[in-house]
Every structure is written in structure tokens, then in C-alpha cells.
Design a protein around this nucleic acid. Structure first.
Lengths: 329, 329
DNA sequence: CTGTTAGCGCATTCAG
DNA sequence: CTGAATGCGCTAACAG
């Protein structure tokens, strides 16, 4: 298998030094040429060597504008982990949700040691460029199932939602509403599926009038709950797929002259830092947010070191019972 | 004098791009060639341009572990501003509150374009090193009055606290408690001074039993308020120097069987994103947090460009009246 | 003699 | 359309 660089060079139609550059992941090779040479190298059983020398000590993290305390907490965990490993985090709060590729390319050009992308998954072209350059990538809570060859991490969204719903059902609730997240995202889909599975298993119907699919925001929860209360079919409990939407739901219930949890129970999802201080303290599903950031960085460094990692990691959620849930009246 | 690069290139016997590279101090020219080209350039009255590209495009930001939503919101503003200017933010969440100097040195070694330090002020030695290297520094909400030659930014803490207290007084409150921040910090001192000034101006005594100096945290507000309610002297209103401590105060009041604002009014300070969603919605003093981050970056870039900037910038706070304050019973 | 690194010029892009 | 700036692949010199 000890193929000569000259052989490959001739095959692809470039010079020997160019093949050497690609083999060592040096920057001054165009994406097109790199691609062709990489293919030939692989065919001959040679693999791209990770950049031994120039480590900039920089890890790039991208979040999109819209996120709230969720992203901040994960970043905090990632920052602590990076600190431990002597790395610094370059944080990009991207105003353009669709410019994940541009971000990746800029970071690559600067010589980043690795990329952590929140939710967004770079395009196949961009991922290939990253792989060719030996720059590792980890996606946190991917919008869509991460494609083969991508490393990703999330919480057990299905199980968490299942546990939340089971908690309500075990208290005796039967008319349970759901305020899902945006159902074009995998995590929201998984939570909704968990809700439905628990209801099904308990032999309960899901009333379409008691399902809102708008989003994770406070106002989503508020508006959804108002609509349900104004409609004829009042639920005795609400599964909100985020702490924020739970907060909005509680507000709407109060404004309607009802009490939580006496009239309606509410359970959230996330366990944000402030959620134990809401009124009433929120029963919710805890995601290990800081740990997700921490592990994302660990995975990145393992990838960079050429170690094997699982393609997808799921961290366990847990039920945190506080005072916003109770048996129905 | 308008000598063409082509002319010089021919004279020295190199290509036009090579002359261009020397003129712009690019690295990929040999010492020998550079010398000959430089001589020819000077003969034609052209001078080597200073490395405009000695910029890494990186701005370093340091926050300490302890901060909550406050720091996150300021960082968000800074990130947006950096984005607009094509810079990236290197975020360091430092577990060691006293290692500001070490952070500054590491960032300098990496070739940062500028430093934004939250609260902490680097030592005089470190500041001199920065000045010598031409690396600008902006301190956000300095712990102590920033020394000469340092650029800093904060909100109008005194005026904000004065306004908050005046609001309570104008509602008719006389027994007003204060939960100050940690009084070793300038911002907490200024807020406490604003409180005292407003009380003095209204001819009101400040009861030492109604002043707590523990800190800005939720539990600080909670513990302080419990102590006051358990003591003999119940206030009719509380000025909390942060939204978090206000939140803790409200919780303590509720647990004591009293109501906000019917029995006791509470006003906060910050206007964090969640404060409009507390129960009741919190009356507070808004700090333009995102704008502080934004302006910090603007100042940094102006300093870097050699433009004059004010040594200290104060951004205006404003009173936001919601539902946690009302006239006394 | 194989693989790596430096540095130059071609071709292309960019600015006026 | 012209002069300048840059990306990138080559040759050449070098190292093991």
C-alpha cells in the first residue's frame, strides 16, 4: 500500500508538492483540487493527516440570534470545558440563520481547531471541505438528523417528553394539552412523539384542539394557552415543550382568573436557571445543558486527536418535580 | 511620482505581483528579493505600507464565572456589533476572578485586536504592556473607578437608583428597604448612593435594619427579605439593586403570606429579558445592556483606529413601570 | 531518492 | 478598461 506521491500526482494531474500539501492538510490548495487529490489518496489507502503543527488554540462556536437562556447555558458549559483544555472559544452569534456554511469557511480560513454548531448542520460541500482539511465538527441538538459522518449531541428528548406526560397522567390528568416546539426541528418532533407515546400507552386520546405547534417562545405559550382557554375545551394539565412556553402558559392561566396548579397543572422542559424561581416553582424536565456544551468540546478534541467517537451522543433528561403540577381538582 | 509597478518590476527583474507583495509587506517574498524591490520602490518615491493586515480579526472578551443573564445580554450586544464590523469575539469565561492579567497576556500573545473586560480592571503592569503593544482595552462596569488612561463604560447607576427610589416615594411609601449589591463594587456603591440621596431629598430616614448589603443574587434577595419580615420592622416597599434580588424578595414576601404589590412594593434594577414575565411583572430600572456591549466594541475599534474617545461613557437608565409597585395600603 | 518547505509568477479577481 | 491585489500551483531548494 506504500503508494508513491508521484504516482498519485500523475494520476490526478498535479505536482508532487500539491499532493503533499493535501496529505498534510495545508491551507494553500483550492477546494476543487483538494477534493480530487483526496479521492485519489483514499483510493490508494492513504488518509489525510491531521494538522500536526499549527494549532491556534481556538474552537469556533456558532449560535443563531434567536436562542435565549438555552444556548447561553450550553455555551457556558463549553467555555468551562475549553478552559480546562487550554483552548479559547470564538463565539459567533450569527444574525443570518442560514449562513452556517459561510461561518464554517471563515473559521477554517482562520485556522480553527474545531467547530461546534448549534442546531444548524453545514451543507454536504462544507462538511467535505472540513473533512478534507481535518477540521472536526460537532453539532449540538441538530435541526435534522445529522447525516453520516457527522458527530452530534442532544438530550433524550423523546424520553423526557414521555416522562413529563407520564407524570401528568400518573397524577390523574386525562385532558392533557401540548404546546410543542416548532415541528420542523428534530428536537421538537421527538418531544411531541414522546408526548403522544405516553398518551397512547395510557389509552388517552390527544384532542387536536389541545395541541399547539407554534414554538418554544414565551409568547407562543401565552397565545396558545389563551386560545385554549377561550375555546370550549379546557385542559386540566399542559405539557409545554420548553420552560419559556410554560412560563407564558402560566401567565395566560392567571390572567384568565385560574390558578396553577389547583385548576391547571403545567410542566415545562429545559430546567433553565430561573425556572426554580418562577411562581409557582416550575415542575419540568431537566436537560443537562452545561454538560452538553462540555461534552461537545470533549468530543471535538477527541476527534481532533484522531480517536473514535460515537456518531451521536444522547444525554439523559430527568424529571424535576416542583409546585406547578398537582392532581386535578 | 505616479510610478507604475510594472516599471519597477522590469527594472528589478521580477513580476508585478511580487512588487505588489513587497509594497504591502506580505510574507511570501524572500529577504533578498524584498531588499532589491524595496530599494527600487524608494527610488521611485514609493514607501512600504504598514501592515494593514496585522489584524487577526479577533476581539477578546472576558467575563467571570459568577455572572448571570446580565453578562450574557451584554455579550450578545457586543457580538452583534463585532459581527457588523467583520470581527469575531473570543469569549473567555474565567473560573479565576483574579486572573485578569493572565487573560490579557494570553490574548496579547495570540495577537488580539482588542480587549473587553467585564468588571475586572487589569493591573498597571498589564495595562502598560497593552499600551506598548498598541492593544486597546475597554472595561465594562468597572469594579473600581477605572484609572487614568483606561476607557470604561457603564450605566447611570446613581441616577437609576435615584429614579427607582423616587418612584417608590412618589407612590407614598415612607418605610423603604434597600437590598444593595456587594458594596465593594463601584456600581453597587453608586446605586446605594442614589437610594440614599433620594431618601434624603424626600426627608426620609434610612432605617439600618432595612438595609441589606449581601449581594445581587436571587438568594441574597430572598434571605434579606425573610430577615426583614421576621424582624419587627416591616417595610412597605423594597428597592432591590438587581432584578435577581427583587425576584428573591418577591418569593420571600409570598412565602410570608403577603402580596406584591398590595402589601409590599418591589422594584428591581437591570430589566433582564425575563423580568416582564415574572409574577407580578416587575417594575424596574432598565439598563441598556445590549447597547453597552455594542458601544464597548465601538469604542474599542475607535481606539484601535487612533481616534479620540471619552475616558468614561455612561449610558442612560430608564424607569419601567409594571405591576410590582403600587401605593401603600 | 522520497517527502517537505519557501517563494515566485500565472491567472483571476477586484477597485477605480 | 487599467492597474493593483490575491489565490494557488508550480519549480527549486532542502531534509531525512
Amino acid at each position: 500500500m506504500a503508494a508513491q506521491l508521484a504516482e498519485i500526482a500523475a494520476e490526478v494531474g498535479v505536482s508532487v508538492p500539491t499532493v503533499s500539501k493535501v496529505l498534510n492538510a495545508r491551507p494553500d490548495v483550492s477546494a476543487a483540487t483538494r477534493k480530487r487529490v483526496t479521492a485519489a489518496l483514499l483510493k490508494h489507502g492513504l488518509t489525510i493527516r491531521p494538522r500536526a503543527r499549527s494549532s491556534t488554540g481556538l474552537l469556533d462556536v456558532r449560535i443563531v440570534n434567536l436562542d435565549g437562556a438555552w444556548a447561553e447555558t450550553v455555551v457556558r458549559g463549553a467555555a468551562a470545558s475549553a478552559q480546562r483544555h487550554g483552548k479559547d472559544l470564538v463565539l459567533t452569534v450569527d444574525p443570518d440563520p442560514d449562513d452556517c456554511d459561510g461561518w464554517a469557511r471563515r473559521a477554517m480560513a482562520r485556522g480553527t481547531d474545531g467547530l461546534v454548531s448549534f442546531v444548524a448542520v453545514p451543507s454536504e460541500d462544507a462538511r467535505n471541505d472540513l473533512a478534507d482539511s481535518g477540521v472536526p465538527l460537532v453539532v449540538v441538538d441538530p435541526l435534522h438528523r445529522a447525516p453520516d459522518g457527522t458527530t452530534s449531541i442532544s438530550a433524550t428528548n423523546f424520553q423526557g417528553a414521555f416522562d413529563a406526560t407520564s407524570h401528568l397522567l400518573s397524577l390523574g390528568h386525562r385532558r392533557v394539552a401540548a404546546i410543542t416546539g416548532p415541528l420542523h426541528q428534530d428536537n421538537a418532533i421527538a418531544r411531541f412523539a414522546g408526548f403522544q407515546a405516553a398518551m397512547l400507552q395510557a389509552g388517552q386520546q390527544v384532542d387536536p384542539a389541545l395541541v399547539d405547534r407554534s414554538g418554544y417562545g414565551i409568547t407562543n405559550g401565552y397565545d396558545a394557552t389563551r386560545a385554549m382557554l377561550d375555546g370550549g375545551t379546557r385542559p386540566t394539565a399542559i405539557f409545554a415543550a420548553s420552560d419559556d412556553s410554560a412560563l407564558g402558559a402560566i401567565r395566560a392561566i392567571r390572567e384568565h382568573g385560574l390558578h396553577v396548579p389547583e385548576d391547571i397543572s403545567v410542566i415545562g422542559f429545559d430546567d433553565l436557571p430561573h425556572s426554580q424561581w418562577t411562581d409557582p416553582p416550575l415542575t419540568t424536565i431537566r436537560q443537562p445543558l452545561a454538560q452538553m456544551g462540555d461534552v461537545a468540546v470533549e468530543l471535538l478534541l477527541r476527534l481532533r486527536a484522531g480517536l473514535a467517537v460515537a456518531p451521536h451522543t444522547e444525554l439523559s433528561t430527568s424529571l424535576v418535580v416542583r409546585s406547578s403540577t398537582a392532581p386535578p381538582a
